[in-house]
Write a protein that binds this DNA or RNA. Structure first.
Lengths: 238, 238
DNA sequence: TATTATTGTATCAATTTGATACAATAACAA
DNA sequence: TTGTTATTGTATCAAATTGATACAATAATA
């Protein structure tokens, strides 16, 4: 039996899949625990006086430095064998905080999965107190992750795919102003499917949520593309 | 501080929105606690040695008598004020099982919402040990529900609406064989939107997951409709 | 055999999407 | 200045999908 825990609620945690877009790849933030060779999603526990959503938001803020982020809950993982006693002990010992084997964090946990969409260029990834590094990894070549974290990532991608077109996904992965080509790339990577340039452009413009701005002169020897932004008043319909 | 609990994990529970279709209404099962005037969704706790999914399945089996049911997780509710101390005490006292105020069930709970789709005509609704009755209620006129259960129902309907067309929703709400008119009614009620009969029929047939069977002679003075069933081998594409 | 309420399809128009073509650049080189 | 090159933004016509309407094919019954 575990000792009582006063600060957090027990048996439940959250994990976040934090997505960023580099211009041609979708990446997520992965923690690495030194002295253990273990990789994991950023996650945490919920304080007794804190809403679940606020706990997740706090965690994402701590890892990324960002406050305004698009957070979406997508699935709760509740298989009975998803405890992390072994890695936790190893990590804690490695960090010089050995924990007794009846510590509450070693009990069974159900975890709520959230995904976050952020502007890649605005993030300062910061490791948590148990990990030594946090880094971006392309979703198509992740290191082997702890427990069921690979399944969590899978489900997150499914969810984002499902939400694209319903929720302002592009808005949050791209900078304020972007080209049509970048927007198309976001759609293509998320849906894992290529689009015909002309049809995509016509479709996006017809949906009437893009505002056109000045042109972007990159120095390339060809016609400069327009920059677009999402028209806030219409983005709900995306 | 609460005493230890050995059989269940704490701070986390589940609630189920069990949908049935009567032919022209979508209904859900609601428990009523006598001596309290309180209505609630069927729910329960998760045993330490039990997968979350299995706990929910067990609960639905106990309330409906059905074993093969379509269960889908849709959202987890984690606001900090969603404890049910007051109603729980009232209910337990009314049932003659007074509980001490430090009992684990009175602590804060995060709940995982699942919806179930079942064949209305096959169910034998059975109340749980704390409630005196369980009954079908149309989703458009529910009694006032406990805590945030109305929000849970809302989210369940949103989810089912979202899943229609992706998951075999119709399959589970209708009997094995059904008419095109019944199928259309299911779509209309879930999406809260009417369809043109001819377009709907053409669309459904073109999707190629319906098998046509014998005609249904109801005794009405008009052409008898065909009965259809979902072609199991193709229903994934629905 | 006519009547009535539905059901299952066919038909043609309207809309959306797919495929292709082409004019309009922005930088640079001759 | 004038070509050249790689893109970008639209126009155009064909193909596919959906909307609207019409109508033939019944089941029961008078």
């Amino acid at each position: 039996m575990l000792p009582l825990e006063k600060e957090h609620i027990t048996n439940i945690a959250y994990d976040t899949v934090i997505f960023g877009f580099t211009g041609d790849k979708l990446k997520i933030l992965i923690l690495e625990y030194q002295n253990s060779g273990l990789f994991a999603l950023p996650g945490g526990f919920i304080r007794r006086d804190e809403n679940l959503y606020d706990a997740v938001k706090r965690g994402v803020r701590e890892r990324t430095g960002l406050d305004k982020i698009h957070l979406e809950q997508f699935h709760t993982f509740g298989k009975k064998n998803r405890d992390s006693a072994y890695p936790f002990k190893k990590i804690a010992a490695g960090k010089g905080y050995p924990i007794t084997s009846d510590h509450w964090v070693l009990d069974r946990f159900i975890t709520v999965g959230y995904y976050a969409l952020i502007d890649y260029n605005q993030v300062k990834p910061t490791p948590d107190k148990f990990s030594d590094s946090i880094a971006w990894h392309s979703i198509d070549k992740l290191p082997p992750l702890m427990i069921d974290h690979e399944e969590i990532v899978e489900k997150a991608i499914e969810a984002i795919r499902n939400d694209l077109g319903k929720k302002p996904i592009g808005t949050n992965l791209l900078p304020k102003k972007f080209t049509m080509k970048e927007l198309q790339k976001v759609y293509e990577i998320i849906l894992n499917k290529e689009f015909r340039r002309t049809t995509f452009q016509r479709k996006m413009l017809s949906l009437d949520f893009l505002k056109r701005h000045e042109k972007l002169y990159t120095g390339a020897a060809n016609k400069a593309p327009y920059l677009y932004s999402f028209d806030e008043s219409k983005v709900e319909k995306e």
